[in-house]
Amino acid sequence: MIPLHYYLVVSALLFSIGTVGVLTRRNAIVIFMCVELMLNAVNLTFVAFSNFLGSLDGQIFVFFVMTVAAAEAAVGLALMIAFFKNRESIDVEEMNLLKL
């Protein structure tokens, strides 16, 4: 039986890796993948807690997170295609339309 803390430490590591990736990379798709990594780290926490607390609720949450992630993937990738069509690039350094 693996202690709960082990899973949580792995999850924390993956989450931090995802955070660093989001903060340091410039390619929008890689950033997107890093976000997925962060989501998975959280999922892992949920399932771990669910198992150790003997309740299904955590896993249901994971189910919904996956659904949202799927929706996010669809919309996010469509956004990137649209952006790429305009700018010929998906470098986030180019995405400065927030400042007019």
Partner: peptide, 12 residues
Amino acid sequence: SGFVHNYAMTMA
């Protein structure tokens, strides 16, 4: 600055 990164960095 208008750059997404700066906002993300600030949020983190």
